[in-house]
Design a protein around this nucleic acid. Structure first.
Lengths: 214, 214
DNA sequence: ACCTGAACACCGTTCAAGT
DNA sequence: ACCTGAACACCGTTCAAGT
């Protein structure tokens, strides 16, 4: 007895995966379920609620290595793994990125992920009062990085040749001129993300008090 | 002789400011300009191009203290000022946040801002090879933070009481339980952003080589 | 070159009706 | 309780026609 709501969410997610977010409408989802558009409403409420449900479902499926009771990886490894899992999710389903920043809330499905970051920060020795802020800092960066990749914000569209040469109609760009040698070719985004995570881990260590023995 | 294109962008931006992004359609913009919807096409090309133009315009109006030739503030102050200017822009026009992450590119209007960050990083003593990566790290965080505020991702919707108490249907949330005292009330977001920027500036200093005398 | 009017192929959602 | 069919008030965009 699969709930009809699950069937609807499955259809909507499959549609977004295959033809992009623009192809997801009450009409196309209904057609895929084999039902009239209006038949969706008792189950999902509205289109906005349907999107919320889609986001909740894929976040619930996000896999990361939390370890077992017997053995947990270092907090650095767990944080890295979480970051890579989030990035892999967005690479596999680019439509997720826009949804995370567009929707007002993320709902309890995301709490599991947030809790994992809290635990990593606590294990790193960050004082409890600082943990929520640093969780927001890290998750904002990770989601923003994944969203930027998905939307193509990091180029190559962003930097045409005039810009990389430090010249722009109506003004000079001295900063671009000085770093021009490192603007193209574009970097390895995996390596850049690793370097960023390493920098953020150093930032976390700087905020940590020495660990008490357990 | 104001260009008709400028008139169209003005109307679209005013509409987004007054009634939100959802109220911006070719039909409503055309009505505001006093023209038929189809009359917009020769000037803006398409709805997607119209959105791109709106983003370009507001980014072009972004004000930050670059200083004068005679006196430039410290790189820390310039970076802080830029971050606050971006955040103020998104607070004033929340529709900008979604646009930045949704559109594939940001176009040359953003290059001026990127260049300012490049210069701040260079002045901080960051090696040229590391500058583009750190620019992306900082700008990704700043835009992500502003977008999170605009969309309400930071709560209070995110944390209902069961979650803050560390209990969730179907699982424990030990991290939430330990930091519960600092989850509510919600923090002062201005102070949090300042603390984040200070942490990022320390991260930048850690990547810097000692400055050569000029 | 710039604009209009009608039309096409879509949207999300309401409402009354069926079983 | 769950679903259908028709309708309402919208979309972005094409196309032929006007000046």
């Amino acid at each position: 007895m699969t709930e009809r709501k699950d069937q609807i969410l499955d259809a909507a997610i499959a549609l977004a995966d295959e033809r992009g977010m623009d192809a997801v409408s009450m009409r196309t989802v209904a057609e895929r379920v084999g039902v009239t558009p209006m038949a969706l409403y008792p189950h999902v409420g509205s289109k906005a609620a349907l999107l919320e449900g889609m986001l909740g479902r894929v976040l619930g499926e996000l896999n990361f290595a939390a370890g077992t009771d017997a053995y947990r990886p270092s907090w650095q490894d767990r944080l890295n793994d979480l970051g890579h899992a989030a990035r892999a999710l967005v690479r596999r389903r680019p439509w997720v990125a826009a949804l995370i920043f567009a929707r007002p809330s993320v709902a309890p499905d995301a709490a599991r992920v947030v809790d994992e970051i809290y635990q990593a920060l606590l294990d790193a020795g960050v004082p409890e009062a600082e943990v929520p802020r640093l969780e927001r800092l890290v998750s904002t960066f990770v989601i923003g990085y994944a969203a930027s990749e998905a939307a193509g914000r990091f180029g190559p569209a962003g930097l045409d040749l005039r810009v990389t040469r430090g010249q722009l109609p109506g003004g000079e760009l001295p900063g671009h001129a000085r770093v021009a040698d490192w603007l193209s070719p574009l970097p390895d985004w995996d390596a850049e993300f690793d370097a960023d995570m390493a920098d953020l881990e150093r930032l976390i260590e700087a905020r940590a008090r020495p660990q008490r023995a357990r």
